[in-house]
């Protein structure tokens, strides 16, 4: 008798675990299905093929005199091109890395030292820093100053002071000849 009832309870327990298992599998299947449905919808909001197929930008550098800057558009955003003076180059190269919040040597940020080419959106929240035009405030380090929340960049486009966490990014740049560059 005891064996019988033990058998019965064993069986009902078995059934319960089997049912639990089925619930689990069905729910998991449903979740996977819902996820499989959601993903294409979510992913459709990522950049589309036409946005990704962004042409690169070619820029003729000849008209930019030493000490002048030019802003070009690449991927819908500004890119700063600065024809640096000797003083600016020396200053950028002379900074010891320990002083930098985002440590990068100037030589790693330029192909040719006289041409500094960096993305023109502040790495804090994306404003366009001042410093491209002659009359602009250039900040405490002679590069750029972002008025939105007060970030100062140096003559290598590196963040020196303020809430921005990173240096102005260096886009992929290729010199097609001495005076023409391709960004992207």
């Amino acid at each position: 008798m005891a064996a019988d009832s033990a058998h019965a309870s064993q069986k009902s327990q078995d059934e319960e675990t089997r049912r639990d298992f089925l619930y689990l599998v069905a729910t998991a299947m449903g979740a996977v299905g819902a996820g499989a449905f959601a993903w294409p919808l979510v992913n459709s909001m990522n950049p589309s093929a036409d946005v990704l197929a962004l042409a690169s930008t070619e820029v003729d550098l000849t008209p930019i005199e030493v000490g002048q800057s030019l802003t070009v558009v690449w991927r819908g955003k500004p890119v700063f091109i600065r024809h640096r003076t000797e003083a600016e180059i020396t200053e950028a190269a002379g900074v010891s890395l320990d002083e930098l919040p985002d440590q990068e040597a100037d030589s790693d940020r330029v192909v040719k030292p006289e041409w500094l080419i960096v993305g023109g959106n502040c790495t804090h929240l994306g404003c366009v820093p001042l410093g491209q035009k002659t009359g602009d405030e250039k900040g405490e380090f002679g590069g750029w100053f972002c008025p939105c929340h007060g970030s100062h960049y140096d003559t290598s486009g590196r963040i020196r002071k303020g809430p921005a966490p990173e240096n102005l990014p260096v886009p992929p740049v290729e010199f097609l000849d001495d005076n023409t560059i391709k960004i992207g």
Partner: peptide, 17 residues
């Protein structure tokens, strides 16, 4: 951020969504 924008900056896809 790229996903929110649907591109590399605030642009037409952003305005649409």
């Amino acid at each position: 951020v790229t996903w929110l924008w649907g591109g590399f900056s605030v642009d037409n896809p952003t305005l649409n969504r």
